[in-house]
């Protein structure tokens, strides 16, 4: 069990808190997709990106989403993060239906409870690495000194604390990607959504990032990772397979140590 300090003040429903995973307690749902469909275009150009998808991610659960290009992986993540609206169905983040929120409330939810790693990073070039990571906290009223401290801790977790004062255009693609990951994990977000977060990283650094996401899940966050790399999906508790916008299969870790053993060599 990972010990994480609880807030002593009453908590707003959208307030981010990473909870310790409690053995024997019923699972707490961080993210729920109920019969979610997403259609782009209309008439003869209509494209169904997602079709009646049901998906639940509990606190402390690490879920990987796999599927071929165009299967709806990134659409699923964008909808879950409130970056796009569903055509049908409902998405709940910590029990709050996203469709019931105003644009401002959605933005606040994203800032406070959801960490999002974009495929193309979405960093602000006029800010340095620390400022990019601390900005969402500061926008949310966290005092600058505390926000910067948390940002530096997040940069340390992704292994680039020595680049904290560099501007974005002074960083390599892989370093920028790690800044984007630090921004997603800063402030103990309840839900972390990562869209191919290791594309620009070498395999060893990619594994380190998986370890960071795993630790966030073990500390109580819900983590959803979109990936085409099986070795990264191997870090997840559950792997969801998408095809043509539908969930076609799921693989859950067996947690059976004997499954690792070969038959005795004769």
């Amino acid at each position: 069990m990972t010990g994480v300090a609880r807030h002593s003040i009453p908590q707003h429903p959208l307030e981010p808190t990473v909870r310790p995973v409690t053995q024997g307690m019923p699972p707490r749902q961080i993210l729920e997709l109920h019969q979610v469909s997403k259609v782009y275009g209309d008439g003869i150009t209509v494209v169904a990106a997602l079709r009646e998808v049901d998906l639940t991610v509990n606190a402390g659960e690490f879920v990987a989403v796999m599927g071929p290009s165009g299967s709806g992986k990134s659409s699923l993540l964008a909808l879950a993060g409130g970056l796009d609206s569903t055509s049908q169905g409902e998405i709940y983040v910590r029990g709050t239906p996203l469709s019931a929120l105003s644009t401002a409330e959605r933005a606040r939810l994203r800032r406070r409870a959801v960490g999002y790693v974009f495929q193309d990073y979405n960093l602000i070039p006029t800010l340095n690495a620390t400022e990019n990571v601390s900005l969402p906290l500061e926008l949310d009223g966290v005092k600058p000194a505390k926000a910067q401290r948390q940002a530096k801790d997040a940069l340390r977790q992704v292994g680039i604390e020595d680049l904290a004062n560099r501007f974005i255009d002074e960083l390599s693609g892989g370093q920028q990607q790690r800044v984007a990951i630090a921004r997603a994990i800063v402030g103990d977000k309840a839900l972390i959504l990562a869209d191919e977060p290791t594309g620009a990283l070498d395999s060893v650094t990619g594994e380190e990032i998986m370890a960071v996401l795993r630790r966030r899940a073990d500390a109580g966050a819900g983590v959803v990772l979109v990936t085409h790399e099986a070795r990264h999906a191997g870090w997840a508790d559950r792997v969801v397979f998408l095809r043509d916008g539908r969930v076609v299969d799921q693989a859950t870790a067996q947690n059976d140590p004997h499954s690792l053993l070969a038959d005795p060599i004769r």
């Binding site: 070795r231 997840a236 792997v239 693989a251 059976d256």
Partner: peptide
Amino acid sequence: RSATLRALQDV
């Protein structure tokens, strides 16, 4: 694919 991924998760 599912079976192999489960094995990969275990490893």
